[in-house]
């Protein structure tokens, strides 16, 4: 099986102290290879805890995490290798930068994998290309001299240089300006096109509707929705019940439908939707004129 299979996961923080807190309970989830999965839910709903199980940073109290057929919590070389197939980009990944130059920092992961310098350099080049940082221009720079968005891209390149099959990103666009945010989302999209499976933690329903092919919603340490994003968003009540906001475009399309137009509410492309609505209005005007 080529996927991340999560079965009946349970995890409790600070077990056995007065501060004990259940973070996950009975979480089962399938992340097929090649998919683009969005993970949504309130702060404290267990998203971060869940993603940290995906590459073995946390080991579950109960349940299992199986990546491409290997249980990653087993104590074997195969399990250790498989954990590295899942790349993890934390929130504000620029906080992990530490080396003197961008190239050294990105090479940290590959060198940890035991690659020699030439192979590592090759990977650095490729990773920088993927995040659109010019290798010759930036390799010698200190990561601390880069701009905010560049720092973040350098940090993500550090994860990509591990060449993961699965990439988990925890709000990669947080704190970026609108343009930076759009660039980031496009970059993730192109990574997905390049064959990397994406798990994206996001609070932005517009991004989720546009990019994800599967949506998982968490609440109180449990999964309360698992399906196609539009299955949820096309139902206003269900979306609100899940504690989420509708994507702007879906909200508009639903209103248009409620006004008596027969529109496809599952559209995610703004331009096409505008065209369709304009066409319908024109049509109705023509009919009324007759």
């Amino acid at each position: 099986m080529m996927s991340i299979e999560i079965k009946e996961l349970a995890y409790t923080y600070m077990r056995g102290t007065p501060f004990e807190r259940k973070a996950l309970e009975g979480v089962s989830l399938d992340i097929p290879k090649g998919s683009y999965v969005a993970l949504a839910g309130h702060t404290g709903s267990g998203k971060s805890t869940l993603i940290q199980h995906m590459n073995g940073l946390l080991s579950p109290d109960k349940g299992s995490v199986v990546v491409d057929g290997t249980d990653i919590n087993k104590k074997s070389d195969a399990a250790r290798k498989m954990r590295r197939k899942v790349g993890m980009v934390f929130q504000y990944p620029e906080n992990q930068l530490f080396e003197e130059t961008v190239a050294f920092d990105i090479a940290f992961g590959p060198l940890n994998l035991g690659l020699d310098e030439a192979a590592a350099t090759k990977r650095v080049k490729k990773a920088m290309e993927l995040v659109q940082l010019d290798y010759d221009k930036y390799k010698e720079r200190s990561p601390f001299q880069l701009s905010g968005g560049q720092k973040r891209r350098a940090a993500i390149a550090g994860v990509l240089a591990m060449q993961p099959d699965y990439l988990v990103l925890d709000e990669p666009a947080a704190g970026l300006d609108p343009q930076g945010k759009e660039d980031m989302m496009q970059m993730v999209k192109s990574l997905h096109k390049g064959g990397t499976t994406i798990v994206l933690v996001s609070h932005d329903m517009d991004d989720i509707a546009r990019f994800a092919d599967k949506l998982v919603v968490m609440d109180g340490g449990r999964i309360i929705f698992d399906g196609k994003p539009m299955e949820l968003f096309s139902d206003r009540e269900k979306t609100e019940h899940a504690g989420l906001r509708l994507p702007k475009l879906t909200s508009l399309l639903l209103s248009v439908r409620e006004a008596g137009f027969d529109v496809d509410v599952t559209m995610t492309d703004m331009d096409k939707a505008v065209e369709m609505i304009a066409g319908m209005i024109r049509e109705r005007k023509c009919r009324n004129a007759k």
Binding site: F90, Q96, N112, L113, G158, M162
Partner: peptide, 13 residues
Amino acid sequence: DKIMKAQRSRGSD
């Protein structure tokens, strides 16, 4: 904790 996890995700042991 966060930084350690980030570096561990990059293969640091």
